[in-house]
Write a protein that binds this DNA or RNA. Structure first.
Lengths: 251, 251
DNA sequence: TATTCCGATAGTGAC
DNA sequence: GTCACTATCGGAATGAG
């Protein structure tokens, strides 16, 4: 059964540093950040709340149990995950720049109906290009517009909504969310329907390849202009060119 | 589309001898006997009515169209197939004896809902052990007790039944027969349910292997007794031993 | 919605 | 109920002193 409770085992470690470096990315007093063992995108991490006297594993079983717990503790727990996730996102964006020369979206959120025990916040890049993404459930579970992937900000907003709304959302009914995973494959970037997984994966890869090409194009453009500026003795052109490059960011 | 009408093409040949020997087994003035291209048993042939001015291909499209045709012509057509099938069965039984040392059932019949154009009578040995038998539809379509495989004798009896019964049977409604192909896998020899196709195939093979072993045992027994008789000068024992071997036939 | 393995099931294309 | 190919779907096991 250890495969179902592996995350709980990690989160229960008194010394997270004993976890292998292939598993553990970092930790704080209240959270663990681990590499997703089967990444569904170029960057894919999990952030787990650590088990402690104040945070028993029973309360941390999943998002539903956390939301049914003491509301203030729940909010604190999720905020802890958030603060770590935001730091992590910065690190991911650094690596995006180093490796790919550009940044793209990083999503933070929970699966409405998880299958592994212990709450885990997914921190995942929006490309969804990775070998471990193999079937419709994988894809739909991360589709940012489908509803199964619950964005962290949305979940945090439940706490500030009416009690009635909080209660409704906190139910996380299987019957509501599970069917979403069987929905047709629709590209989360251009909304084009895809016939099957191989087609979808090729399609997503081509979106990503275009992004990479675009970033390369801009890098070359910037380099070109920089060289022209260096060669030019006319200091007056500088400002106009800088403005032109800044505009490219939004194109 | 030639794959759908391949049998009609064969049956329309004015000179069947031009068919390759890998296809044609034999022919008469009114029928062709060909090797099933994907045999579902150790012996598996198809007998086709030949197209002629008296027997247009439109009438011979399938069993339903034949039964909707002139009733006397239909009966004659099917009787022609039968007389060839009976001869063929004799030849198959000869080869069974030569190759395996024993004979086993040979079925003659039609699929209630065929997918290849042109009437074809299956002549197939009851082992149903063959590499080309790959899925549930294959097996159920030849299961001798399921109802999808229409035994030739049963079909011929329809002609001598009441007109009402003939009309009913002649409908060959898809909605009645198609669902049978999805039935659970049940061994046609011992009625044991089989979980899946690999299991069924192993099971059928073991039935056949037992038959072969049994036949070998008898052959050895007969040989032994013959040798004893040859060595014995006592002629009185002969009759008793012959009777004993005859009894083994039914065991 | 952990993966992996096996097998059944479904759609397609075949000229 | 043609085949062969691809992909999806569905269940079961998964560990292990």
């Amino acid at each position: 059964m250890s495969f179902l409770t592996i995350l709980r085992q990690y989160a229960s470690k008194t010394d997270p540093a004993t976890l292998p470096p292939t598993v553990l990315f970092s930790h704080s007093t209240t959270t663990l950040t681990i590499f997703d063992a089967y990444p569904k995108a170029t960057f894919h991490f999990l952030i787990l709340p650590r088990v402690s006297p104040n945070c028993p594993s029973s309360a941390l079983a999943n998002l539903k149990s956390v939301l049914a717990w003491d509301k203030d503790k729940a909010k604190q727990c999720i905020r802890d995950l958030q603060s770590n996730a935001l730091e992590l996102r910065d690190k991911i964006e650094e690596e995006m720049m180093e490796k790919y020369g550009f940044k793209w979206d990083v999503w933070m959120g929970f699966h409405a109906v998880p299958s592994l025990e212990h709450l885990h916040l997914h921190v995942i890049s929006s490309d969804l290009c990775a070998p471990a993404l193999k079937n419709k459930k994988h894809y739909n579970s991360f589709h940012s517009k489908l509803g199964f992937f619950l964005h962290l900000n949305d979940v945090l907003e439940w706490f500030d909504a009416t009690e009635s709304h909080f209660k409704t959302m906190a139910k996380l009914e299987k019957s509501k969310y599970e069917p979403l995973l069987k929905d047709d494959l629709v590209c989360h970037r251009c909304y084009e329907r895809q016939k099957n997984i191989p087609t979808l994966k090729t399609h997503l890869q081509s979106h990503f390849d275009k992004d990479v090409q675009k970033a390369k194009g801009k890098a070359i453009l910037i380099l070109k202009r920089k060289r022209e500026d260096d060669e030019s003795s006319d200091g007056r052109k500088d400002q106009a060119k800088k403005a032109s490059v800044d505009q490219d960011k939004d194109s």
